[in-house]
Structure formats: structure tokens, C-alpha cells
Amino acid sequence: MPRVALYNMNGDQVGEIDLKDEVFGVPVHQQALHDAVTMQLAGRRRGTHDTKTRAEVSGGGRKPWRQKGTGRARHGSIRSPIWRGGGIVFGPHPRDYSFRVPRKVRRLAMKSALSSKVSGGTIVVLDELKIDAPKTKDMIKILENLKVNNKALVVTAERDETVYKSARNIPGVKPLSVPGLNVYDLLAHPTLVITRDAVAKVEEVFA
């Protein structure tokens, strides 16, 4: 059972916390991580790109010149794909790029991402995270106390508007609640800062 240090907002260690093996101690499954990230990024694509085929471009209703006798190649329309300004043959059209991977694979990917934070020593567990008023400098101070100097994902059990507004303007820092936790953000941010209540909720959902 993984055991990590428990810190307060001043950066002092106030104890240790045991994490469940079935969530924070599983072997990292690279293929599951790849599938989950690919699914998430594909779902973000708008898919609104479009090109016109020869049936959609304007003009071309008349044969540009007679079939024989001119010495030039025969053509039936100036909107042929081989003409400048003509239609596009295999261009993109609006489509939905999203797809789904099996639920078990998604859960395995989440557990693998969380376990990689524990095995890499890049998880910081807070006993609590409370800010009286939305102030970015207060969140910066807390991160400095925890010696978090790079990109960080700050996770709380429920959406806390004060924490969210205090952290959203810090470059490289992204606040999330447990319902919004995802594999891509876990991998994109080197450090995971998570509250003890959020750990319990994650274990409740994924154990």
C-alpha cells in the first residue's frame, strides 16, 4: 500500500496517508493511457473543416472549348479537379472525430495515470485547501510553500469557486474537481496537488 506525506498549506508535513493499491499502486499500462488520451483529444476536435467538390464550386456549366480541332487537350468543365479553381477530390468534410474506448480501459488509464504520480514522487497531498477570498497571490504562496515550481494540477473533492478563481490565472496551474479529473490533464501536468478529501473520493469512485 503506497504511503505518501501529508502537508498543510504552510508546506509543513503533518503526517502520512495510505493510498489504496487498486487505485494508486497499479502497474502503469501505456496502451491504456495512449487510448484514453487519443479519445479525449479526438473528442475536442470541432470537425468543421470543409472543401468543395466539383459539384459545389460555381461555374463550369459550359464546355470550355470544342472537343476537336483546337490542338488542346479535351475538357468538359473548368471546375474539373485538375483545373485551378476547380473542385477538390479527397478534401476534408465536416465529420465527428469522437470515439469511445471500453469503460474498463478508461478506468485502467485513470488508475495508471494516478499510479505514475505516486511512483514518480510527483503527488502532493494536502490535509485541506481553504482560501477565504479569491486571491491569486494566496494560491501562489501555497504552491511556493509546497515547493511546486512547475505546471501543477490542483484537485479538490468538489468544485470550490474560491480555489478555482485563485488558481485559474496562474500560468501552468489548472484547478479541477474530482468529477472533472481526466487522464490528459494528469499526464500534461508534472505535479499533482490533491486534497485528502479528493483522495478519498477518487478511491471511492475507482477502487
Rank of each mutant, 00 (worst) to 15 (best):
T195Q: 11
G59Q: 06
I82S: 13
W65F: 10
H34Q: 07
H189L: 07
A200D: 15
Y97L: 05
L19G: 10
K104F: 05
T70V: 03
I140S: 03
K20S: 13
T156D: 05
Y164P: 01
V178N: 12
G91N: 04
D132T: 04
V4P: 10
P171C: 05
M139F: 03
D185C: 08
N8F: 03
L6H: 04
L143M: 05
L126N: 04
P102Q: 05
Q40S: 11
R103A: 14
N145E: 10
R107S: 08
T162G: 03
P190L: 08
L143D: 09
D127H: 11
K68R: 09
T51H: 06
V105C: 07
A207N: 13
G71H: 12
V193S: 02
L129R: 05
D96E: 14
A55K: 06
D132Y: 02
T51D: 10
T162Y: 09
G85D: 12
D50W: 00
R3T: 07
V155F: 07
H34Y: 12
V199P: 11
R62K: 15
E56L: 06
G121S: 14
N150M: 08
S116R: 11
F90Q: 07
R54H: 11
V124A: 02
G85S: 05
R168F: 06
E128V: 00
K151G: 13
N150P: 06
I78L: 10
V148E: 09
R79M: 02
L41A: 11
E204A: 10
R72D: 10
V14A: 01
R107Y: 04
P175C: 01
P94M: 04
P81I: 00
I194E: 01
E22L: 05
P134H: 13
F24S: 00
V124L: 10
V26L: 03
G76M: 03
R66F: 12
E158N: 14
E158Q: 15
V202P: 00
W83D: 00
K137S: 15
V4R: 01
S80E: 08
N182Q: 02
N169L: 05
A36W: 06
V154Q: 13
H34P: 02
A32L: 00
P102N: 14
F24H: 05
A42G: 06
A55Y: 08
S119F: 15
P92N: 06
V37G: 08
L114E: 00
K117T: 01
A42S: 14
V183M: 02
D185K: 04
I131W: 03
R196W: 01
E128I: 00
G61H: 12
A167C: 15
T162Q: 02
H75D: 04
A200V: 06
T195I: 11
R84I: 15
G43E: 00
M110V: 08
V199W: 10
T136F: 12
